[in-house]
């Protein structure tokens, strides 16, 4: 009895160690990149500097968390970026003058997300195909609503994104809050275990009496809600809507999840790691402009940084017991 308890205690300890190692890599990369930036430009090491550096990582962070939920189920979401673009169009057009209509459209979009999650589960369709198709549907809806970039974000939203809370800049507060909320819901709560189980080991979950369809639908709905949040926040930053604003979020989101310790096989994801991963990936782009890489090399160099950090992650996970 005491043996078993000790054994499970040991396992929990090792699990925690693995979690820490998962987060250590993106966190180290983040600190190194920040150190280089601050070394080049000490003035950036200020409240103002931090808020500028991390401003645009806020929406990416929520988009990455949405992607994380889908990857947790063992699926992948290629429509994430286009969906965020659609949400910026809705926000820029309706959130100011007709907030109720905007909220209704958001709910409709989230319901559609959940519906497609259910479809993927019921028909056992490959999520990569369904969401690739959906990405064009979202883009089409966005272009129909807003043929060219335009519209205006409501003042309260712009004001919120430029708000200067005490102690730390807003992007840092949001990152900490999102990481902690995700950690307690996904990694700590008993319901979180069910959610992860839906991706990692659905059979067991089914035998324990849970409806996989309900769980998956709920998770897709939550992913849609987080992507909605990302789109609304992005609208506040750019002050306008554009259906083509965020296609890069799809793959950067996947990168952030994997960087933060997630795995494509489903069941293994880390909200804290994902948030740090998103911050790291958005800083990677900044680093290049600080070290003044020639423009023709920048696109390639960004790929190399991504590759190095992700390769480090793979090496690390191979060494882990």
């Amino acid at each position: 009895m005491s043996d078993a308890a000790r054994w499970s205690g040991l396992r929990a300890g090792r699990q925690r160690l693995r979690d820490a190692a998962d987060i250590a890599l993106p966190a180290t990369a983040l600190v190194v990149m920040l150190a280089v930036i601050f070394w080049i430009r000490p003035a950036a090491m200020s409240y103002f500097g931090f808020s500028l550096l991390f401003k645009l990582s806020t929406p990416l962070m929520f988009a990455a968390l949405a992607q994380m939920l889908v990857i947790m189920l063992g699926d992948i979401d290629l429509s994430n970026g286009a969906f965020v673009g659609l949400v910026t169009c809705i926000s820029a057009l309706y959130l100011g003058p007709q907030p109720m209509l905007a909220v209704a459209l958001f709910l409709l979009a989230i319901a559609a997300y959940a519906g497609f999650g259910l479809l993927i589960h019921v028909r056992q369709l490959p999520s990569i195909i369904v969401t690739l198709g959906l990405s064009f549907v979202w883009l089409g809806c966005g272009v129909t609503l807003l043929p060219g970039p335009g519209g205006t974000a409501p003042d309260w939203l712009i004001g919120f994104m430029n708000w200067r809370p005490p102690l730390m800049p807003l992007p840092i507060w949001l990152a900490i809050l999102a990481a902690l909320a995700g950690h307690f819901v996904i990694s700590r709560s008993s319901y979180g275990a069910v959610l992860r189980g839906a991706g990692g080991n659905p059979r067991t979950l089914q035998r324990a009496g849970w409806s996989i369809a309900a769980v998956k639908t709920g998770v897709y709905a939550a992913a849609g809600a987080l992507a909605c949040l990302a789109g609304v926040l992005l609208t506040g930053l750019t002050t306008s809507g554009d259906p083509n604003v965020a296609p890069a979020y799809t793959l950067l989101g996947v990168g952030a999840v994997i960087l933060g310790g997630g795995s494509f096989s489903g069941g293994f994801v880390s909200p804290i790691g994902t948030v740090i991963g998103a911050l790291t990936l958005s800083i990677a782009g900044s680093l290049l402009s600080f070290v003044q890489v020639p423009p023709t090399w920048q696109i390639g160099a960004q790929g190399v940084i991504l590759f190095l950090v992700l390769a480090g992650r793979v090496l690390l996970s191979e060494k882990a017991p």
Binding site: R41, L53, K55, L56, P59, T238, V245, A248, G285, S289
Partner: peptide, 30 residues
């Protein structure tokens, strides 16, 4: 979004002036 981030970086790097060939008429406004 990347171009917007780059403009934020140029602000931090302390440039006196930035000339912009924008990828979007509105999305860089912020």
């Amino acid at each position: 979004t990347e171009q917007a981030a780059q403009i934020q970086n140029l602000i931090l790097q302390g440039y006196s002036a930035i000339i912009v060939l924008a990828g979007s008429d509105t999305a860089l406004n912020g």
